[in-house]
């Protein structure tokens, strides 16, 4: 049996609900985009229903602690197709076993979700580190990013708590949406304009002292290096090359 869902978290949990209603045995879960019709396997289109998803979520929250609930959410944000299937199997596994089953790292789904969640958290942590704001002429601190996983929702709290007295905008250029803080609250924004323009901010859009501080930062980065200890391998291990395009000191 194949379950087809729309790719949303609600859709995924609706699928879990459907499974318990029908008990069809082995099921593989795929997104609409990835679905390939198969002559021998029947398929079921899952209708996303908020109430059903909420019931599943609450049911899971009863059996799992907050760490595991976050792991499920972060694993979902990885946007990896196999992980959707793992979350689906994991939810069924948790519901059909006594409490504490999530500690069974010998189980393939448990381990895979824990590991994927770690990857997403690492990407989130890297974004907290590698985001470099540029101050624009209208006093907004802007940064465009294209993270491997969809981590913007996880960044909101960190940046809201830290930069409470400045407006900032973090824009995911790959997924084409951003989060904007307007000194009061954080809201999701979408820009209708061509994003490639944002990649190269025009000089006149920036605050006049922006280039000075960027220059000072580059200088600091250079002078704090100890040439005798040069270790390029370690350097690229910590700062993989795909992130260099964000980094003021690497430009």
């Amino acid at each position: 049996m194949i379950y087809i869902f729309d790719g949303s978290l609600e859709g995924l949990f609706s699928a879990v609900f459907e499974w318990f209603e029908r008990k069809p045995g082995e099921v593989s879960l795929v997104t609409v985009k990835r679905y390939q019709p198969d002559v021998f396997t029947p398929a079921l289109q899952i209708i996303t229903q908020r109430e059903k998803a909420d019931r599943v979520w609450k049911g899971l929250a009863k059996k799992l602690d907050s760490t595991w609930m976050r792991r499920l959410y972060t694993a979902y944000l990885s946007e990896i197709d196999e992980v959707y299937h793992d979350i689906f199997r994991f939810a069924i596994y948790i519901f059909s076993h006594p409490a504490g089953a999530e500690k069974n790292y010998g189980n393939a789904q448990v381990l895979h979700i824990a590991q994927t969640s770690r990857k997403v958290e690492r990407e989130k942590h890297r974004m907290e580190a590698f985001i470099r704001f540029q101050k624009t002429a209208d006093e907004i601190f802007y940064c465009g990013i294209d993270p491997d996983y969809n981590v913007l929702p996880l960044l909101i709290n960190h940046f809201k708590n830290r930069y409470a007295d400045q407006m900032w905008l973090i824009y995911d250029l790959k997924r084409n949406y951003g989060i904007f803080y307007n000194l009061e609250s954080v809201e999701e924004v979408e820009m209708g304009i061509d994003v490639s323009m944002l990649k190269k901010q025009e000089k006149q859009l920036l605050d006049e002292r922006e280039s000075l501080y960027a220059e000072l930062w580059r200088n600091y980065f250079k002078s704090t290096n100890i040439v005798a200890r040069k270790n390029t391998k370690l350097h690229t291990q910590h700062v993989p090359k795909r992130y260099w395009k964000y980094l003021t000191e690497k430009l």
């Binding site: 409470a164 007295d165 400045q166 704090t224 270790n231 370690l234 910590h238």
Partner: peptide
């Protein structure tokens, strides 16, 4: 904690914002 809508807060596990070419955290 960031109090009174100021700027900055502590991060329990710390954040390395970049690394020098010798591989040390900055």
């Amino acid at each position: 904690k960031n109090t009174n809508k100021g700027v900055g807060n502590g991060h329990q596990s710390g954040i390395c914002h970049t690394y020098t070419e010798d591989g040390r955290c900055v």
